[in-house]
Design a protein around this nucleic acid. Structure first.
Lengths: 222, 222
DNA sequence: ATATCATTGACCGAAAAAGTCAATAGGCGT
DNA sequence: ACGCCTATTGACTTTTTCGGTCAATGATAT
């Protein structure tokens, strides 16, 4: 397997040197296409969506498989750096933790709308094929560890005594996820910057309103 | 368009006459394959998953398009008859309504695991293509009407005065959806009937626990 | 002008696509 | 046992799409 000396740092230098806009356009087009699985993704669709020629895509990545490998590594690295790595698991108020996680996730999703779903699909693919990459497995493990840690460090005494704190946390997570999902389309439509910004502020405001409501309902009165 | 006299009741008689097990096996295999869109669905995958020969599928449905049309009509009819049509929108306690909806949805999903998602995909497909079928549009409209009606008839005075009832209802919906999603995999794995049944009971029990908790948190004390 | 490098899209052989059909299996009445 | 009829098969055809290539072109700096 490791017959080359640089077996794990394939550089993709030609691609990395592009300006940000084009690079992310290609990344997002590819991730979107890979959502339905490696096999069903078509490089023709990717280049059409990205607005580049087919030759160029293969000039950057060589093969479809290497493109997919790059995306997987890139997604893992990004989510690690801009999501998992920024979560403060030591906060005692887990509502704050979940709130923070939601904001971070939204920030990543604004730049890379399909990154989380892409990784999920990549993981399913890898499990089906039987070959789960080392990094992918580590990533999943890391994610679980963070959630477990956040939960372990949470001050459960903040919750009302007559409710199951674990279930409350689940509900909160689902509520945030559902909220983000439902607003994604409204915000995600391609409108000029001003309207998008306005939508985003509205989004945050309503989001916070929900947070306060959950706090009011699930936490002890102080 | 209506050059034939039976333009809308294509019969698919050869298929309808099959025994239930085989019929539903084919329907479910096809719906599953169509989840990633009409174009990307492969009839070869469908027949492999369904365990029938290719010739037979085309013997039943003629073309891929007619198969898809059949599935769409079938899904609409089924969801109409076994989900939307059975919801009692007059219940004043909307938690009861949501609970009932969840049970109905689960019952349908047990027989046709991908039916709801298939319809969603079919709708997205139709919007992309530009041709949203009359029935499909009606279906969506019906769904919205039912939800609106249930909400309109809900007795908001059951909710605590200091919370936004509309947001509370959203949270409840998202929580139920998230719960169903998270448990789906556990239940959905292909294990013998006994274990599946056991899982299902467990599912219902935990479900009800969550319902009670939400009632306790969002409703007035009596 | 020339050298250099990014970029294109027509093109390739191979694979997969939808759909067909002669051949067979499997029951059923006689 | 026999023929009869329908259900079912899967190899096959034709067309499209696939991943991948490459000679040609555009752009830029010297």
């Amino acid at each position: 397997m490791d017959e080359r000396e640089h077996e794990h740092d394939e550089d993709f230098q030609k691609f990395q040197v592009l300006d940000e806009e084009k690079r992310e356009r290609i990344i997002n087009a590819a991730m979107k296409e890979f959502l339905s699985g490696y096999k069903k993704a078509s490089t023709d669709n990717i280049v059409r969506e990205a607005g580049i020629s087919k030759g160029l895509l293969f000039h950057y990545f060589g093969t479809k498989e290497r493109l997919h490998n790059f995306l997987t590594a890139y997604a893992i690295k990004t989510i690690q750096a801009e999501f998992l790595g920024l979560i403060n698991v030591l906060q005692p108020d887990i509502l704050d933790t979940i709130w923070q996680m939601s904001l971070l996730k939204r920030d990543v999703s604004r730049r890379y709308p399909d990154m989380f779903d892409f990784l999920t699909a990549a993981f399913v693919d890898a499990k089906t094929t039987g070959s789960v990459t080392e990094n992918l497995a580590k990533m999943v493990h890391m994610r679980e560890r963070i959630l477990a840690e956040a939960y372990a460090n949470a001050d459960k005494s903040l919750f009302r005594d007559d409710i199951d704190s674990e279930m409350a946390i689940n509900i909160i997570n689902w509520a945030f996820e559902g909220f983000a999902q439902s607003k994604m389309h409204a915000v995600g439509s391609d409108n000029p910057g001003a309207a998008a910004r306005e939508n985003y502020d509205e989004f945050l405001e309503e989001f916070q309103k929900m947070l306060n409501m959950l706090r009011k309902c699930f936490y002890k009165k102080l």
